[in-house]
Design a protein around this nucleic acid. Structure first.
Length: 519
RNA sequence: GGCCCCGUCGUCUAGCCAGGUUAGGACACAGGCCUUUCAAGCCUGCAGCACGGGUUCAAAUCCCGUCGGGGUCACCA
């Protein structure tokens, strides 16, 4: 049997980390079995700007490498892939259920059903709709309509017996039919609801495996009822554990952003991103620029493979030791059998760790490619100027693993500012240049050494400084910090000799002179 | 509240189905080494089977119960 899975997002305007994890598992499963992955848009609850609200979702999936064989922009034989364009199929399905006595026209007013529901609640008994306004004959319909009532279509659910849902992850899950309500599947205006639509579409699109988040498990009986009623073969179900909040077991939700911000690790991740966003002049929309939304990671320069790797491990594992995977490797080894049942909470720190690991694997030139746009956006280098590349490459190489995400390159903006525009970190300047009595004097002496230097590569500079330290009979720490602050304005950075070499002799001398002048 | 799901270090997890492990790995954390700062790296450490019964020579693993957490109960998806 051909494996076909689907991901069916609503066009909400953003791609949520929990949603994308579900999409990833669907995709991985399809790819692992040489099957197809379908993208279908759940826009039955019409809003206007579907295209605009869909774009971030499609972009996010594409960025992560989750490609779809059928769906928006891809086409396919099972289209259209927008539920809003498939309404006729749902109506036909509703008609069939009606004709077979598995659904009925219901003329109850919303308040009337609500009143029954509340009465049951008050009496602390299970709510069972009285079906008082059920109309199964033309006469009944005419009578209710004469009262000015309008009909919705409800499922005529069984009121006894049990149902067993075979779930690939959870095993057999048993439900009592009696607990199920007569759900509405079609509104008075003829539009159909999610459960009907999803069952019809999954069938029409020949979906073999319905892989979705756990919160849908309790919705499954009614869907099975519909599928049976329509004479469909059931797909295989697999209900994934949901992704939980950092440090909790509660489902991750975009709406609770304020709460997550109080989480130290989460907040740190966000602040890191904000620093980069600020440097590159990105206008921050808190609604989408935060670690719950995939777009955030793209903006600040994460590696899609790292996100995929981390997400894959949220609820799935291969064995007791392998954690580092490329997306291609995941496709090779992924299986539903090894998906966990318990919810997995989102750990910003661990995500960062994966990012670092993947960054380590990235060839230097790829890193340069990633980093360049950030320097351009920050106005640190002119846009599209190939001449800056060698210098950027040197910096990236020297910074090595200090660049955790591409946007971190903005930390090295000092290499690109004019010598007389360098700003000093006041605290560092005070501590390293002003306070130590001998700092300025030593720096001045070493400036002469630099001025006389014939070669200005890192290795030569290293030798020069060590010779200097020896003849002066001082410790390297007595002078090197002063040099760093003078040359970069900061107390921290990568190797001192790389720093000086990249800056070049004229810049080094100019910067030292300038620092000396204000000590 | 009803129904359903879940419960191994702080977190992600291996082990559970086919009982016997010093309960393994990773992230985080702490300490150390390295060192010109910051990272990285290396070493060491800290830390867990929710609880109670039962079955068994032996239980994280099988059975029962309790507790805890979560999901869901719409003319949303």
């Amino acid at each position: 049997m051909m494996v076909r899975t689907r991901f069916a997002p609503s066009p909400t305007g953003y791609l949520h980390i929990g949603g994308v994890r579900t999409a990833l598992f669907c995709w991985l499963f399809a790819r692992a079995h040489g099957g197809q992955f379908v993208l279908r848009i759940d826009d039955t609850d019409q809003q206007r700007n579907v295209d605009a609200a869909l774009k971030p979702i499609l972009d996010g999936l594409r960025w992560l490498g989750i490609d779809w064989d059928e769906g928006p922009e891809a086409g396919g034989e099972h289209g259209p892939y927008y539920q809003s364009q498939r309404a006729e199929n749902y109506k036909a399905a509703a008609q069939k259920l009606l004709a077979d006595g598995l659904a009925y026209y219901d003329y109850a007013r919303t308040e009337e059903v609500q009143a029954e529901r509340e009465a049951a609640e008050k009496a602390k008994v299970q709510f069972v709709y009285s079906r008082r306004w059920m109309a199964e004959t033309a006469e009944d319909r005419a009578r209710f309509e004469a009262e000015g009532r309008q009909a919705v279509v409800r499922l005529k659910m069984p009121r006894e017996g049990k149902l067993v849902i075979p779930d690939l992850i959870r095993g057999d899950v048993e439900f009592d039919w009696a607990r199920e309500q007569d759900h509405v599947i079609q509104r008075a205006d003829g539009s159909c609801l999610y459960h009907l639509a999803t069952v019809v579409d999954d069938h029409d699109m020949e979906i073999s495996h319905v892989i979705r988040a756990e919160e849908h498990l309790s919705n499954t009986p009614r869907q099975i009822f519909i599928a049976h009623g329509l004479g469909y073969d059931l797909p295989q179900y697999a209900h994934l554990p949901f992704v939980a909040e950092p440090g909790s077991k509660v489902k991750l939700s975009k709406r609770k952003l304020d709460k997550y911000l109080k989480n130290k690790d989460f907040n740190q991740l966000l602040q890191h991103g904000q620093k980069i966003a600020e440097a590159i002049g990105l206008t921050i929309d808190m609604d989408t620029f935060n670690p719950v939304i995939v777009d955030f990671y793209e903006q600040v320069g994460y590696l899609p493979e790292a996100i995929v790797n981390y997400l894959a491990l949220l609820g799935w594992s291969l064995d007791d030791k392998t954690e580092h995977f490329t997306t291609a490797q995941l496709v090779e080894v992924f299986s539903l059998q090894r998906v966990n049942k318990a919810p997995a909470s989102f750990d910003p720190k661990k995500l960062s760790a994966f990012q670092e690991r993947h960054m380590l694997d990235l060839p230097i030139d790829k890193k340069v490619d990633m980093v360049l746009p950030y320097l351009e956006k920050a106005g640190m280098v002119p846009a599209g100027d190939a001449a800056v590349r060698p210098k950027v490459r040197q910096i990236v190489e020297a910074a090595s693993d200090r660049i955790k995400v591409a946007g971190d390159i903005v930390d090295y903006g000092d290499f690109f500012v004019a010598d007389d525009e360098l700003t000093y970190d006041e605290k560092a300047f005070e501590k390293r240049l002003r306070k130590p009595e001998d700092a300025a004097g030593l720096l001045k002496k070493f400036r002469q050494v630099l001025a006389d230097a014939e070669a200005f590569d890192a290795e030569s500079l290293d030798r020069l400084l060590h010779e200097f330290v020896e003849t002066e009979e001082i410790k390297i720490g007595q002078v090197i910090h002063a040099i760093r602050v003078a040359a970069t304005g900061k107390a921290v950075g990568f190797g001192m000799f790389d720093t000086l070499a990249i800056l070049g002799k004229p810049s080094c001398l100019a910067r030292i002179d300038r620092a000396l002048a204000v000590v």
